[in-house]
Amino acid sequence: SLEELLKLARHALRHGEEIHVLDRVITDEHEIKRLIEELERLI
């Protein structure tokens, strides 16, 4: 769900981890922040 993805993204950002989204691995902090902003808009 989007909520789950948002939780994962926030966790990854906090802990400096990578996040796997739709067969992509996002490691860049700015990309993760952008993902979080997009998800928050959708929810």
Score class of each variant (00 low, 15 high):
H15V: 09
L6I: 06
I19D: 01
L22E: 11
I43Q: 04
D23P: 01
K7I: 12
A12C: 03
I43K: 03
E31M: 08
I19Y: 05
I32K: 07
H11I: 06
E29T: 13
L35Q: 01
E40R: 06
H11N: 08
R41L: 09
T27W: 07
R34L: 13
L35G: 00
E38N: 09
I32L: 13
I43R: 03
L35Y: 10
A9S: 04
H11G: 04
V25K: 05
E3N: 08
R14F: 13
E38I: 13
V21T: 07
E40S: 06
E37F: 11
L13F: 06
E37C: 05
G16P: 03
R14I: 15
I43G: 02
D28S: 13
D23I: 03
A12K: 02
E29N: 08
E31G: 07
R24T: 08
E3C: 05
D23Y: 02
L2K: 04
L39K: 00
H11T: 06
L22K: 11
E38S: 10
H20L: 11
V25D: 05
D23M: 03
E4F: 09
E40T: 08
R14K: 15
L8S: 07
L13K: 02
L39D: 00
H20D: 05
H30A: 14
V21D: 03
E40P: 00
I19K: 01
L6K: 01
L2Y: 10
R34C: 06
K7T: 10
E38C: 07
V25T: 09
I26Y: 15
D28F: 07
L6E: 01
V25E: 05
E40A: 05
L6S: 01
L13A: 04
K7S: 10
K7Q: 13
R14Y: 13
L22R: 08
T27D: 07
I19H: 01
E4D: 12
A9P: 00
V25P: 05
L22V: 08
H30W: 14
R24L: 10
E37P: 00
L42R: 09
L8A: 13
A12I: 02
V21W: 15
I19F: 13
R10H: 13
R24F: 09
I36S: 00
R10W: 15
I43C: 05
L5G: 00
L13W: 05
I26S: 02
V21A: 07
L42E: 06
T27E: 07
H30E: 14
L13S: 03
L13I: 06
H11P: 00
H15P: 01
D23E: 06
E17D: 08
L2W: 11
E29H: 13
E17T: 15
L2E: 03
L8V: 08
L8H: 07
E3G: 07
E3M: 12
I43W: 05
I36P: 00
L42S: 06
L6Y: 03
K33F: 08
I32T: 02
I36W: 01
L22A: 14
L6N: 00
G16L: 04
S1Q: 13
R14V: 15
A12E: 01
I32R: 01
H20E: 08
D23C: 02
R10E: 12
R34I: 11
D23R: 01
R34D: 10
R41D: 06
H15Y: 14
E31L: 07
D23N: 08
L13M: 05
L6F: 02
S1A: 14
K33C: 03
L2N: 04
R34F: 09
T27I: 09
I26W: 14
L2S: 03
E17H: 15
L39Y: 03
E29L: 13
K33M: 14
R14W: 12
R10S: 07
H20C: 10
R14C: 07
S1D: 14
A9F: 10
I36T: 01
K7N: 11
L42K: 08
L5I: 08
L39Q: 00
L5P: 00
D23A: 03
L2P: 06
E38D: 10
R41F: 09
L8Y: 07
L5K: 03
L5N: 01
E18S: 15
K7P: 00
E31Q: 09
H20W: 12
I36Y: 01
L35H: 03
A12H: 02
V25A: 05
E37I: 12
I32V: 05
E3A: 10
A12M: 02
G16I: 03
E17V: 14
I43A: 04
T27Q: 09
L2H: 05
D23L: 03
V21F: 15
D28A: 11
R10Y: 15
L42Q: 08
E18W: 10
G16C: 03
E40N: 05
L39N: 00
D28L: 11
L35W: 10
H11E: 11
A12S: 04
E31F: 05
E4R: 10
L13E: 03
G16Y: 04
R34V: 10
E29R: 15
I43M: 07
A9I: 13
K33R: 15
L5T: 04
E18R: 08
R41P: 01
H15E: 09
L6D: 00
L5Q: 04
I32Y: 02
A12P: 01
R24H: 09
I19Q: 01
E37R: 12
I36V: 07
D28G: 15
E40W: 06
I43T: 04
R10Q: 15
L5V: 05
E18D: 09
H20R: 15
L13V: 04
R34G: 08
L13D: 02
H15S: 10
H11A: 08
L42I: 10
E38F: 15
K33Y: 09
H30S: 13
E3I: 13
R14T: 14
I19C: 03
E17I: 14
L35M: 06
L35F: 13
H30T: 13
R14L: 15
L2T: 05
H11Q: 08
H20I: 14
H30N: 14
K7F: 10
T27N: 10
H11Y: 08
L22Y: 14
I32E: 00
L42T: 06
G16H: 11
T27R: 11
